[in-house]
Write a protein that binds this DNA or RNA. Structure first.
Lengths: 202, 202
DNA sequence: GCGCGCGACTTGACAGTGTCAAGTACGCGC
DNA sequence: GCGCGTACTTGACACTGTCAAGTCGCGCGC
């Protein structure tokens, strides 16, 4: 049991994954780590701070996956599509983190500045890719903004619905490969969307 | 103070709207209604049951708005677009309800059967509109499913991001008209999307 | 007319939670 | 050797959801 701080973070994610964010309890986490109920509190100051740290780490993970997609080979269209796929994959593989990341009432992220910078880092990948794909000398800024919002909304909505289990059956195991049918659904949905979005190119 | 049951439901929504779903407390609700801490419990049996009831009512409200859009005049394309707009509008005008509706870990909806029927009622509006717009004798079922998922994901993602405040600045007042800039953002995003989706027509 | 049952509500208790306020053990520089 | 800060423990408080009783009042059968 090397680093209690890391252990606490891991146990928190595990707990959220198992029983949802409402069941996240510092005391239960402490119990799982085999320490007193105040030990986690010593490392994080408050439950909010712990959650904020998890959120920040989540956004760095997401940013890395998006940046990998961005720097892949292929046309801008292809890389934008890859980024969308990466977004959904991240949500499915890190359900616990994803569930927390977009819930401002859970932890005020102002406490953890890196959360803010990491989330804009992820966002700017999307902005760059959309500009590259749909930008042009005669394309107004407003239009690009709308296209960015459209792409983000689509992948975020798809990811959210999948994680919450509203779409098809959820594959419950954490970290496991998403099952075949959701895989196919994601692929076909992104396919339809990227084909549709292609018609917006200048 | 006529119907305590209704009063409790209203106070619950109010509380969620003010301080987020984590702050929903039966005891605080009871305090606001001026009754003992067990009075709400008598009407609902458990906190989960209360939330489930709110979810069910939320879905009926959403279904009604979607059905109104469905039975409006105009081309299928236009009505589909209106339904999307209705979805986002519902989320913005009933933030508290919307925040709860897609969170299965908050309340097991199996306790409240109407929640399930009402949610599929809303979903089937979307399915009908997509079939009407994109269906045809030579269009495979899989393709239609993908288009349904695409539409749902887009409006759900847009609504979620707006409600959570990730997109632009949130207009915090509950029930108030969404402010001008988010209004414009929604309009432009749906515009871009419905134009893009049009290219998928048979 | 009257008991009485039952629904609406209250009071009291218990385990669980986040958090504040102390106390304890221990390693390291001086 | 000694202080001191770091990592942690123990104990307490207010708060939560929920179980178990008790109280009040009203309508209905007899």
């Amino acid at each position: 049991m090397p680093d209690l701080r890391e252990q606490v973070l891991a146990a928190s994610l595990e707990l959220i994954e198992e029983q949802g964010v409402a069941a996240l309890s510092l005391r239960e986490v402490a119990r799982r780590a085999g320490v007193s109920h105040q030990a986690p509190y010593h490392h994080f100051g408050s439950k909010d701070a712990l959650v904020a740290e998890l959120v920040a780490r989540g956004f760095t993970g997401l940013s890395e996956m998006l940046e990998a997609a961005e720097s892949a080979r292929g046309t801008p269209t292809r890389r934008l599509r890859l980024a969308g796929r990466a977004y959904v994959d991240f949500a499915l593989r890190h359900r616990a983190a994803f569930r927390i990341m977009f819930r401002p009432e859970l932890a005020d992220l102002s406490a953890c500045p890196s959360a803010d910078t990491e989330s804009t880092r992820a966002y700017s990948v999307l902005v760059r890719l959309v500009e590259e794909t749909f930008g042009g000398p005669r394309v107004p800024r407003r239009r690009l903004e709308a296209i960015v919002t459209m792409h983000w909304s689509l992948v975020h909505g798809l990811a959210t619905l999948l994680v919450d289990g509203s779409l098809g059956e959820r594959s419950d195991e954490a970290g496991s490969t998403p099952d075949k049918s959701t895989e196919a659904l994601v692929e076909q949905t992104l396919d339809a969307f990227s084909r549709a979005a292609a018609s917006l190119a200048p």
